[in-house]
């Protein structure tokens, strides 16, 4: 069992680790801060790598297995880096009824990636959301934080192309 006194060893000089450490400190470095701390890591780095999981485990004094368990249990956390651009297709009920599967199929066929995957060149990640809450705009998708409502398959492909090759 690893114990530490005072400030924990940061994995590198990267200033973002200080932000992560600050979150843990704000919660008294108690084990219950695990999810909040993982949120901060993902906010800062975009994803959770092994380094980060080890650091969080040491700073909160919880077993690495518990950190890994939480990181893989919750869909919001990702252990892989995302592509430069992300297209999120909503698969909520309203969007499903109004044609979200067709959007996904079009993107999958054009870029040969499945939901959760990134193109080999690291340009595009295809993601799905349980519900964006924009049910009035169904089917909806988000391309690099721009919400696209009532969108047709050919339009989403055009929009992705414009995003990747402006």
């Amino acid at each position: 069992m690893q114990t530490y006194v005072g400030a924990p060893q940061l994995p590198s000089d990267d200033k973002r680790w200080k932000i992560v450490e600050a979150t843990a400190r704000r919660h008294g470095r108690e084990p219950h801060a695990l999810i909040e701390t993982l949120h901060t890591v993902q906010e800062c780095f975009g994803y959770l790598d092994e380094n980060a999981l080890r650091f969080v485990a040491s700073v909160l004094r919880v077993p690495l297995s518990r950190v890994y368990g939480a990181a893989t249990f919750y869909h919001f956390f990702t252990l892989k880096p995302k592509g430069r651009h992300a297209c999120v297709v909503c698969t909520g009920t309203a969007c499903y009824i109004k044609g979200a599967p067709l959007l996904l199929k079009a993107i999958e066929q054009r870029y040969s990636i499945k939901p959760g995957e990134t193109t080999p060149d690291g340009e595009l990640s295809l993601l799905t959301a349980r519900c964006l809450g924009s049910c009035g705009l169904a089917p909806a998708a988000v391309m690099d934080s721009a919400v696209l409502g009532k969108i047709a398959p050919q339009d989403i492909l055009a929009r992705i192309e414009r995003g990747i090759h402006p």
């Binding site: 084990p31 999810i35 939480a70 249990f73 919750y74 956390f77 349980r130």
Partner: peptide
């Protein structure tokens, strides 16, 4: 963090405690 089951009260409590 995106887990539907956390709408269940005891699962939600576990999540606030920092667990799965």
């Amino acid at each position: 963090a995106g887990a539907f089951v956390c709408g269940e009260e005891t699962a939600l409590i576990a999540s606030i405690e920092g667990k799965r």
